[in-house]
Design a protein around this nucleic acid. Structure first.
Lengths: 211, 211
DNA sequence: GTCCGATGTATCGTTTCGATACATCGCGAA
DNA sequence: TTCGCGATGTATCGAAACGATACATCGGAC
């Protein structure tokens, strides 16, 4: 699940761990720990699976010829110092073709929409999806929220005290608001895209049925 | 963190794993996995530390409840129908004195109020707390939410597209609503408690004083 | 009679977290 | 100058939680 977050961020530009953590913390909201204890293992995992690769840092923005041909000594190469402006040794990561594929797959996965955090992540990368896939995810999410709401209504334990009652109410309200929000997003998806964004070809839906 | 949830539930009556899982799932809302993979290890942990102990099942609703009307009694009554039909072997757990102490400590811990789930737990056990401690927790929570809000306002990344914008807005709204909710709770805490409660367990309750 | 779903206990492998250990840089105060 | 110290940066460790799954037994439906 961190995978999706990492790949999505690397898609825009290669970055190194520390920077990545900061970006994640702020894409995903201030909640969401994203500690190093999960970040670095996730990076190693992705690297091992060939979804990302190390690009020896320093100037990760421009100019670097793509080939580079990492020679054998990864360890010593990592420690290489720049000519004069010796920044601390950093390892930046770049996404590979394999990684792009994995990203697309994770992003499209409808099961992701069940989990709150994963869905938020998917939504934040919606710009990389076809309208069809967007709608699919939104509807999955809608179904999940509707289900939670139904379960919460059905459950109706008479509440022990005012605290648990208030908690239950607040929880229900939150789900309702989430649901309304999703509905608004679905609605926005179905009508012609406002001219501000590059939301391409809006002519693709005949998805009218269920309420 | 599961510890708190488990102890709080065992406080009312001894239960066994399966039942506990169901109760947790429904105290904590339908989200919150509480899988067996975390529940059983947590139980073993607690048992090892002497906070709970096994009461070999069947007789888990013994003499005591002369006051009647435990909310869970329907469930326990259902279990009790075993004169000769030996139900499957179950291990019920009972909280010990040490466990009560631990519970009280965890419940009162102000750092818990930072984490969403832990705070929800604490709130759901507010009836076991002194008004002073309640206020302390609520204020801690308030501070945390206010902080999130401030950070989110300060951060103000101009938003890549309408999805990320909508996400950010929705997130901010949610925090604002949470904050308002907490404020209402704080407010309710300061004024005399209305005595509307139908489901009181009379023993632990002298919370009425605004003192 | 037998299949099936609910009840029940338990473990395995993986992911995530929080804390911490490192090392280097920039910078201001002693 | 040197010292500390906070920000930057990479990395690991142990514990916690998860999802999946393996087990058994029970009560009914067919």
């Amino acid at each position: 699940m961190l995978e999706l977050a990492i790949l999505g961020n690397l898609k825009q530009a290669p970055v190194h761990g520390y920077e990545l953590k900061k970006r994640l913390a702020d894409t995903l909201g201030p909640l969401w720990g994203v500690s190093f204890g999960s970040l670095y293992p996730a990076l190693r995992r992705l690297e091992r699976s060939g979804a990302i690769e190390v690009v020896d840092a320093q100037e990760e923005a421009p100019a670097i010829p793509s080939t580079g041909s990492l020679r054998g000594e990864a360890a010593t190469a990592r420690l290489r110092l720049a000519p004069k402006t010796s920044r601390r040794a950093r390892k930046a990561y770049r996404i590979t073709a394999r990684g792009e594929a994995l990203f697309s797959e994770l992003l499209r996965d409808p099961d992701g929409a069940v989990d709150d955090r994963t869905f938020a992540l998917q939504l934040s990368f919606f710009r990389f999806l076809e309208p069809t896939d967007r709608l699919e995810l939104l509807q999955r999410r809608r179904a999940e929220l509707a289900d939670r709401l139904a379960r919460s209504r059905r459950n109706r334990t008479p509440a022990l005290d005012r605290y648990t009652r208030s908690l239950a109410e607040h929880r229900t309200d939150s789900v309702e608001r989430d649901l309304a929000w999703i509905d608004a997003l679905i609605d926005g998806e179905r009508r012609p895209a406002p001219s501000t964004e590059p939301t391409d070809r809006p002519q693709e839906q005949e998805q009218g049925a269920t309420a």
